[in-house]
Amino acid sequence: MSDIILETRGLTKHYGGVHALDDANFTLRAGEHVAVVGDNGAGKSTFVRQITAVEQRTAGKVFFDGQDVSFAGPLQAREAGIETVFQTLALADDLDVPSNLFLGRELYKLRLGPFSILDRKTMRERTLEALKTTAVKIPNVDNPIRNMSGGQRQCVSIARTAAFASKLVIMDEPTAALGVQETAQVENIIRGLKERGVPLILVSHNLRQVFDLVDRIVVFRRGRIVASLRRDETDGNDIVSYITGVKGSEGAAA
């Protein structure tokens, strides 16, 4: 019981008449990596937004780290230890890589309230370390990220999440816009999290990736969780038939 990191009971979100998420029962155990798959509009991002409190849920409960939580906003979720890579990038384009990595968690040489002096050297060094583990190609981290490719920016975003990961990492389609090499880099970061024992919820469309990386696959269909399968007891065809509704119209608990 105590090894359950995250649990949702009857998690529901309606947008007016749209039942984007209905009665989602989901559990995530310590160190476990779970993939969330499903068609476009199946409610995957909605599910993520309820857990991270970007939106307030319509009904249901969320237990995190053994406690019944209802975060007031994404910030509280983050402070509680949930690091998220959202589907829309949350980076400041005019800042360089270290500033983005440390945004809101800056290191200081001298504390003077709002005029605290930044420790730019240490932040830069730590950034280089964090990025080395991702093997991302960034010629010069001192340039504003505005001019970087989508993949480089996504890697910055993910490196930021991985570097500060504490209790739970959530990634919403982290490789959707990436090339082959960049995707491989992101997958390496995910393997690193697995080695470190950091649990992960990975929203992805890429079944090859899902089967490569995770322990369990949860399928969403029309706002409901229709299947939760261990990787070794299922295969691609099986998952696809759940996604398309050939199988599992009766609903299942995850």
Binding site: P74, L75, R78, E79, L89, A90, L91, A92, D93, D94, L95, S99, L103, G104, R105, E106, Y108, L112, P114, F115, S116, I117, L118, R120
Partner: peptide
Amino acid sequence: TYTRYGKHSYAIGSNEQATRMSGI
């Protein structure tokens, strides 16, 4: 150039939503 005040000023002008989400 060197303080939190400056860094956060640029961050807000660059992406206010992201800055807010970063806990600032």
